[in-house]
Protein backbone atom coordinates (compact mmCIF):
# COMPACT_ATOMS: atom_id res chain seq x y z
CA UNK A 1 0.00 0.00 0.00
CA UNK A 2 2.75 2.40 0.96
CA UNK A 3 6.25 1.89 -0.36
CA UNK A 4 9.06 4.30 0.46
CA UNK A 5 12.55 3.95 -0.95
CA UNK A 6 15.37 6.13 0.26
CA UNK A 7 13.19 9.16 0.96
CA UNK A 8 15.01 12.39 1.72
CA UNK A 9 13.54 15.66 2.80
CA UNK A 10 15.19 18.86 3.91
CA UNK A 11 13.95 22.31 4.71
CA UNK A 12 15.62 25.61 3.94
CA UNK A 13 16.16 27.48 7.14
CA UNK A 14 17.54 30.70 5.83
CA UNK A 15 21.17 30.05 4.92
CA UNK A 16 21.50 26.47 6.16
CA UNK A 17 19.51 23.38 5.34
CA UNK A 18 17.72 21.26 7.85
CA UNK A 19 17.94 17.66 6.74
CA UNK A 20 14.89 16.04 8.30
CA UNK A 21 14.54 12.70 6.53
CA UNK A 22 17.81 11.05 5.64
CA UNK A 23 16.81 8.05 3.59
CA UNK A 24 13.69 6.28 4.77
CA UNK A 25 12.88 2.79 3.48
CA UNK A 26 9.49 1.57 4.49
CA UNK A 27 6.81 -0.83 3.35
CA UNK A 28 3.35 -0.85 4.78
CA UNK A 29 0.93 -3.45 3.48
CA UNK A 30 -2.80 -3.14 3.16
CA UNK A 31 -4.74 -3.53 6.38
CA UNK A 32 -1.78 -2.88 8.65
CA UNK A 33 -2.06 -0.70 11.71
CA UNK A 34 1.27 0.94 12.30
CA UNK A 35 2.48 3.43 14.83
CA UNK A 36 5.38 5.76 14.20
CA UNK A 37 7.28 6.89 17.26
CA UNK A 38 10.19 9.15 17.87
CA UNK A 39 11.28 12.17 19.81
CA UNK A 40 10.31 15.58 18.52
CA UNK A 41 12.43 16.55 15.56
CA UNK A 42 12.95 12.94 14.54
CA UNK A 43 10.96 13.56 11.37
CA UNK A 44 7.85 11.52 12.14
CA UNK A 45 5.39 14.27 11.28
CA UNK A 46 7.29 15.12 8.11
CA UNK A 47 7.13 11.48 7.08
CA UNK A 48 3.39 11.42 7.71
CA UNK A 49 2.92 14.62 5.70
CA UNK A 50 4.82 13.19 2.74
CA UNK A 51 2.76 10.01 2.83
CA UNK A 52 -0.37 12.15 3.12
CA UNK A 53 0.60 14.18 0.01
CA UNK A 54 0.61 17.35 2.07
CA UNK A 55 4.30 17.82 1.43
CA UNK A 56 6.73 16.73 -1.29
CA UNK A 57 9.84 14.65 -0.79
CA UNK A 58 13.15 15.76 -2.30
CA UNK A 59 14.65 12.44 -3.21
CA UNK A 60 13.72 8.77 -3.42
CA UNK A 61 10.70 6.88 -4.70
CA UNK A 62 7.30 6.90 -3.10
CA UNK A 63 4.58 4.51 -4.24
CA UNK A 64 1.06 4.93 -3.00
CA UNK A 65 -1.16 1.97 -3.84
CA UNK A 66 1.31 1.09 -6.62
CA UNK A 67 1.28 4.61 -8.03
CA UNK A 68 4.55 6.53 -8.24
CA UNK A 69 4.12 9.90 -6.60
CA UNK A 70 6.32 12.56 -8.15
CA UNK A 71 6.02 16.22 -9.08
CA UNK A 72 2.39 16.23 -8.21
CA UNK A 73 0.47 19.44 -8.81
CA UNK A 74 -1.78 20.63 -6.04
CA UNK A 75 -5.02 19.90 -7.90
CA UNK A 76 -4.09 16.26 -8.44
CA UNK A 77 -2.76 15.94 -4.90
CA UNK A 78 -6.02 17.33 -3.54
CA UNK A 79 -8.00 14.75 -5.49
CA UNK A 80 -5.78 11.87 -4.34
CA UNK A 81 -5.97 13.04 -0.73
CA UNK A 82 -9.70 13.21 -1.04
CA UNK A 83 -10.06 9.68 -2.44
CA UNK A 84 -7.22 7.73 -0.85
CA UNK A 85 -6.40 9.28 2.46
CA UNK A 86 -8.25 10.23 5.61
CA UNK A 87 -6.63 12.59 8.07
CA UNK A 88 -6.99 12.72 11.83
CA UNK A 89 -5.17 15.51 13.62
CA UNK A 90 -4.16 16.17 17.20
CA UNK A 91 -6.15 19.43 17.25
CA UNK A 92 -9.12 17.81 15.46
CA UNK A 93 -9.16 20.51 12.75
CA UNK A 94 -12.90 20.63 12.38
CA UNK A 95 -14.55 23.52 10.52
CA UNK A 96 -15.99 25.68 13.24
CA UNK A 97 -19.00 27.07 11.35
CA UNK A 98 -20.21 23.68 10.13
CA UNK A 99 -22.21 21.36 12.33
CA UNK A 100 -21.22 17.76 12.98
CA UNK A 101 -22.99 16.24 10.02
CA UNK A 102 -21.70 18.92 7.62
CA UNK A 103 -18.15 18.45 8.88
CA UNK A 104 -18.34 14.75 8.24
CA UNK A 105 -19.85 15.31 4.80
CA UNK A 106 -17.20 17.82 3.72
CA UNK A 107 -14.93 15.39 1.78
CA UNK A 108 -17.96 14.31 -0.23
CA UNK A 109 -18.76 17.98 -0.90
CA UNK A 110 -15.38 18.29 -2.61
CA UNK A 111 -16.22 15.21 -4.66
CA UNK A 112 -19.37 16.94 -5.86
CA UNK A 113 -21.86 14.64 -4.15
CA UNK A 114 -25.28 16.33 -3.78
CA UNK A 115 -26.01 17.72 -0.35
CA UNK A 116 -28.91 15.45 0.52
CA UNK A 117 -27.01 12.33 -0.42
CA UNK A 118 -23.79 13.27 1.34
CA UNK A 119 -25.62 14.26 4.52
CA UNK A 120 -27.37 10.90 4.51
CA UNK A 121 -24.02 9.14 4.19
CA UNK A 122 -22.59 11.39 6.88
CA UNK A 123 -25.37 10.36 9.25
CA UNK A 124 -24.40 6.70 8.74
CA UNK A 125 -20.82 7.46 9.71
CA UNK A 126 -21.92 9.56 12.65
CA UNK A 127 -23.86 6.52 13.83
CA UNK A 128 -20.72 4.38 13.53
CA UNK A 129 -18.86 6.72 15.88
CA UNK A 130 -21.87 7.07 18.17
CA UNK A 131 -22.64 10.74 17.56
CA UNK A 132 -26.08 10.49 15.97
CA UNK A 133 -27.60 12.63 18.70
CA UNK A 134 -25.00 15.33 18.14
CA UNK A 135 -25.47 15.65 14.38
CA UNK A 136 -26.75 19.22 14.49
CA UNK A 137 -24.21 20.47 17.02
CA UNK A 138 -21.31 22.70 16.19
CA UNK A 139 -17.80 21.43 17.04
CA UNK A 140 -17.53 24.01 19.82
CA UNK A 141 -20.40 22.25 21.60
CA UNK A 142 -18.63 18.88 21.67
CA UNK A 143 -16.11 17.40 24.08
CA UNK A 144 -12.56 16.53 22.98
CA UNK A 145 -13.35 12.84 22.57
CA UNK A 146 -16.49 13.62 20.58
CA UNK A 147 -14.53 16.00 18.35
CA UNK A 148 -11.95 13.37 17.61
CA UNK A 149 -14.60 10.78 16.84
CA UNK A 150 -16.19 13.32 14.54
CA UNK A 151 -12.84 13.85 12.82
CA UNK A 152 -12.49 10.08 12.42
CA UNK A 153 -15.95 9.87 10.87
CA UNK A 154 -14.87 12.63 8.46
CA UNK A 155 -11.68 10.74 7.62
CA UNK A 156 -13.69 7.61 6.86
CA UNK A 157 -16.54 8.98 4.80
CA UNK A 158 -14.74 8.97 1.47
CA UNK A 159 -13.83 5.31 2.11
CA UNK A 160 -10.09 5.91 1.96
CA UNK A 161 -7.45 3.19 1.72
CA UNK A 162 -5.29 4.83 4.36
CA UNK A 163 -6.00 6.80 7.50
CA UNK A 164 -3.17 8.99 8.75
CA UNK A 165 -3.41 10.13 12.34
CA UNK A 166 -0.99 12.70 13.72
CA UNK A 167 -0.99 12.43 17.53
CA UNK A 168 -4.73 11.63 17.54
CA UNK A 169 -4.81 11.20 21.31
CA UNK A 170 -2.45 14.04 22.13
CA UNK A 171 -5.21 16.30 23.36
CA UNK A 172 -7.34 13.62 25.05
CA UNK A 173 -7.41 12.08 28.49
CA UNK A 174 -6.54 8.41 28.87
CA UNK A 175 -10.11 7.10 28.87
CA UNK A 176 -11.15 8.91 25.70
CA UNK A 177 -7.78 8.02 24.18
CA UNK A 178 -8.64 4.38 24.60
CA UNK A 179 -12.08 4.93 23.08
CA UNK A 180 -10.50 6.57 20.06
CA UNK A 181 -7.93 3.77 19.70
CA UNK A 182 -10.75 1.24 19.91
CA UNK A 183 -12.46 3.04 17.06
CA UNK A 184 -9.26 2.94 15.00
CA UNK A 185 -9.00 -0.77 15.61
CA UNK A 186 -12.53 -1.37 14.36
CA UNK A 187 -11.78 0.66 11.25
CA UNK A 188 -8.57 -1.28 10.77
CA UNK A 189 -10.48 -4.54 10.92
CA UNK A 190 -12.51 -3.43 7.92
CA UNK A 191 -9.26 -3.49 5.91
CA UNK A 192 -8.16 0.13 6.02
CA UNK A 193 -4.47 0.80 6.57
CA UNK A 194 -3.83 3.06 9.54
CA UNK A 195 -0.68 5.01 10.38
CA UNK A 196 -0.55 6.69 13.76
CA UNK A 197 2.16 9.10 14.80
CA UNK A 198 2.45 9.15 18.57
CA UNK A 199 4.95 9.55 21.33
CA UNK A 200 2.88 7.68 23.89
CA UNK A 201 4.08 4.13 24.46
CA UNK A 202 0.71 2.72 25.53
CA UNK A 203 -0.91 4.07 22.40
CA UNK A 204 1.83 2.59 20.22
CA UNK A 205 1.42 -0.73 21.94
CA UNK A 206 -2.19 -0.92 20.77
CA UNK A 207 -0.97 -1.19 17.17
CA UNK A 208 0.42 -4.19 15.34
CA UNK A 209 3.72 -2.66 14.32
CA UNK A 210 5.88 0.02 15.85
CA UNK A 211 8.36 2.03 13.81
CA UNK A 212 10.80 4.20 15.73
CA UNK A 213 12.46 7.11 14.05
CA UNK A 214 15.63 8.73 15.22
CA UNK A 215 17.30 11.70 13.51
CA UNK A 216 15.56 11.12 10.19
CA UNK A 217 16.27 7.42 9.97
CA UNK A 218 14.32 4.33 10.98
CA UNK A 219 15.85 3.15 14.22
CA UNK A 220 13.71 0.12 14.79
CA UNK A 221 10.77 -1.57 13.12
CA UNK A 222 9.22 -4.47 14.91
CA UNK A 223 5.96 -6.35 15.13
CA UNK A 224 4.13 -5.74 18.33
CA UNK A 225 3.46 -9.17 19.81
CA UNK A 226 0.92 -8.20 22.41
CA UNK A 227 -0.86 -5.40 20.69
CA UNK A 228 -4.23 -6.09 22.21
CA UNK A 229 -3.91 -6.36 25.97
CA UNK A 230 -7.00 -7.44 27.83
CA UNK A 231 -7.06 -4.63 30.36
CA UNK A 232 -7.22 -2.03 27.55
CA UNK A 233 -10.27 -3.69 26.13
CA UNK A 234 -11.89 -3.56 29.53
CA UNK A 235 -11.32 0.19 29.70
CA UNK A 236 -12.61 0.77 26.21
CA UNK A 237 -15.87 -1.02 26.94
Amino acid sequence: MIKLQNIHKSYDMGSNKLHVLKGIDLNVGQGEMVSIMGSSGSGKSTLLNIIGLLDNHDEGDFYLDGMLIRDMNETKAARLRNQFIGFVFQSFNLISFKNAVENVALPLYYQGVPRRKRNKTAMEYLEKVGLTDWAEHLPSELSGGQKQRLAIARAMISQPKIILADEPTGALDSVTSMEVMELFKEINQSGITILIVTHENDIAHLTQRIIKLHDGLINSDHKNGHHQPLNVQAIAV
Binding site: E74, A78, R81, N82, Q83, I95, Y110, Q111, S158
Partner: peptide, 15 residues
Protein backbone atom coordinates in the same frame (compact mmCIF):
# COMPACT_ATOMS: atom_id res chain seq x y z
CA UNK B 1 -5.66 27.21 8.88
CA UNK B 2 -9.29 26.60 7.94
CA UNK B 3 -8.38 26.71 4.27
CA UNK B 4 -5.49 24.36 5.03
CA UNK B 5 -7.90 21.86 6.59
CA UNK B 6 -10.21 22.08 3.61
CA UNK B 7 -7.34 21.49 1.24
CA UNK B 8 -6.05 18.58 3.31
CA UNK B 9 -9.39 16.80 3.01
CA UNK B 10 -9.64 17.40 -0.70
CA UNK B 11 -10.56 20.96 -1.65
CA UNK B 12 -8.76 21.64 -4.93
CA UNK B 13 -6.98 24.98 -5.46
CA UNK B 14 -9.59 26.01 -8.01
CA UNK B 15 -12.34 25.26 -5.51
Amino acid sequence: KEIGIMRAIGASPSK
